[in-house]
Design a binder for these strands. Structure first.
Length: 460
RNA sequence: GGCUGAGUAGCAAAAUGGUUAUGCAGCGGUUUGCAAAACCGCCUAUUCCGGUUCAAUUCCGGACUCAGCCUCCA
């Protein structure tokens, strides 16, 4: 039985989908005005892994992850660059998709964009105005009347009076209550706009997610996720908007992933302490980043360091070493290891525990390899199968070790040629020459391993 | 100030009222021409103070420290 930690109740709960066969999941995606950083990678990887696990449990999963392609920062950046905002956002959407591919992500079922949903957004705001949950102000903005929604604060555990006492409420002369938030922003000079019953303008941030999620998944769906920083106010506001509009319960389970930290601080754009995915990809494989992210449970904070990424590299090397040469087996069904793995993942997606099972299997592969080759093949197949549920270990081991021919100074043929020369020297017991060739290759980051039958190599 | 969450060995990170996490790193051994990898074995732990209990890292209370949200943020 799958249990998930629900931010709405602050406890683990049995996961029971509304429709027993299907899971509907909405995740808040990126605002596309810059390259994605490792923090974004964590959301992507965490929810991709959740998506995979739900599918492996047999659910038909409808996974919607939106793209915010209109907002203040996008407009600001586009104006800085003197380019249309659509050109800017498309560029970063493409970049994001490249990053996703590198990280081994499955495509979500749907990636709706805010700008494609203006009618839905406007319709929702109209309903909220009609129900008196929203009002148009003199300046052309439309605001949500927070105090009218009696459940406000239920997700973030906040009371209205606590929020009022908060230190950082901005006073705005057009709002009837400082807590009210904007649904529709009136256009300013040099800004893109859409027509609406309240004049030219654009949607506020929160409303697009309410509009897109309910439009694509229905008024009431199973899982809503995103980074922990979205819990308040973004998700709180989504609940207020959606439930006031539809009169129905919005999402049943709220999942929030923890942050990546740099020097004990949250990695973020505003602190300027972020590492983009593409920067990290210069030194590490996407799979290594993915492994690193999965070494901690998704709700925990995760410290960024190259030491951790190096460790991820070594750990994956161990797993791939176990798999090497054991490619054609059939995985046994319902083995104890698989049960352990599923139990770990069913416990609020405990990927560190699931990874531990992978290492047990790798250990088994290594032990069985010579004495019980048939079993070793089955174990390896299971290892690869479970790895796939985490989005890991799907590269051919030889390819993983050797990399792409064009990556280094020396071609595969040249390497094989030198190995042949070295084997000749070994036959003649010319150890000095054999070691010389090995050192020469090592200088070029090629590591050799003498097996009983043959010498294998890898790029370090 | 309000609300959350966290403090486990060199590093990272699980779990558990009494019994091996796991990975990286390190140490010893087997193996190897020497290596590498693998295998066998070892090493280091539960922030502090009380309480409950036969027994607590695990439950309860308190302290301290840290992080996050309350402003855009994954």
């Amino acid at each position: 039985m799958l249990q998930v930690y629900n931010s709405l109740t602050n406890q683990k709960e049995n996961f029971v989908p509304i429709n027993p066969e299907q899971v509907r999941m909405y995740v808040c995606g990126m605002t596309v005005y810059d390259y994605c950083h490792l923090g974004h990678a964590r959301v992507m990887i965490v929810f991709d892994t959740i998506y995979r696990h739900l599918k492996s449990l047999g659910y038909d999963v409808n996974y919607v992850r939106n793209i915010t392609d209109i907002d203040d920062k996008i407009i600001e950046r586009a104006n800085q660059n003197s380019e249309p905002f659509e050109v800017l956002t498309q560029r970063f959407i493409d970049a994001m998709h490249d990053d996703e591919k590198s990280l081994g992500l499955l495509a979500p079922s749907l990636e709706p964009r805010a700008t494609d949903h203006m009618p839905n957004i406007i319709e929702m705001i109209q309903t909220l105005v009609a129900k008196d949950y929203a009002y148009a102000a003199e300046n052309g903005d439309v605001y949500y009347r927070v105090a009218k929604f009696k459940g406000y604060g239920k997700l973030s555990g906040r009371l209205l009076e606590d929020l009022r006492a908060g230190e950082r409420i901005a006073i705005d002369q057009y709002k009837q209550d400082p807590l009210d938030f904007v649904l529709w922003k009136a256009v300013k000079p040099d800004e893109p706009y859409w027509d609406s019953p309240w004049g030219k303008g654009r949607p506020g941030w929160h409303i697009e997610c309410s509009a897109m999620s309910t439009h694509h998944l229905g008024n009431h769906f199973d899982i809503h996720g995103g980074g922990h920083d979205l819990q308040f106010p973004h998700h709180e506001n989504e609940i207020a908007q959606s439930e006031a509009c539809t009169g129905e319960h919005f999402a049943n389970y709220w999942l929030h992933n923890g942050f990546i930290r740099v020097d004990k601080e949250k990695m973020s754009k505003s602190l300027n302490n972020f590492f983009t995915i593409r920067d990290v990809l210069k030194d590490y494989k996407g799979e290594e980043i993915r492994y690193y992210i999965l070494t901690s449970q998704y709700r925990s904070p995760l410290q960024y360091s190259t030491a951790q990424l190096d460790s991820a590299h070594s750990s994956l090397e161990r797993l791939y070493t176990a798999l090497r040469g054991l490619e054609d087996g059939e995985a046994l069904e319902n083995s104890p290891a698989e049960m352990q793995f599923i139990a770990a993942m069913n416990d609020d997606f405990n990927t560190p525990k699931a990874l531990a099972v992978l290492f047990e299997l790798a250990h088994d592969c290594n032990r069985q390899r010579d004495s019980q080759p048939e079993q070793a093949l089955q174990t390896a197949a299971l290892l690869k199968k479970l790895g796939s549920q985490l989005g890991l270990l799907q590269t051919e081991p030889e390819l993983w070790f050797k990399g792409i021919d064009t990556e280094s100074d020396m071609s595969d043929d040249q390497i094989n040629d030198l190995i042949a020369q070295r084997n000749l020297a070994k036959q003649e017991k010319d150890w000095a020459k054999a070691d010389d060739i090995r050192n020469q290759l090592s200088e070029l980051n090629i590591a050799l391993k003498d097996g009983a039958q043959e010498t294998t190599w890898r790029r370090k």
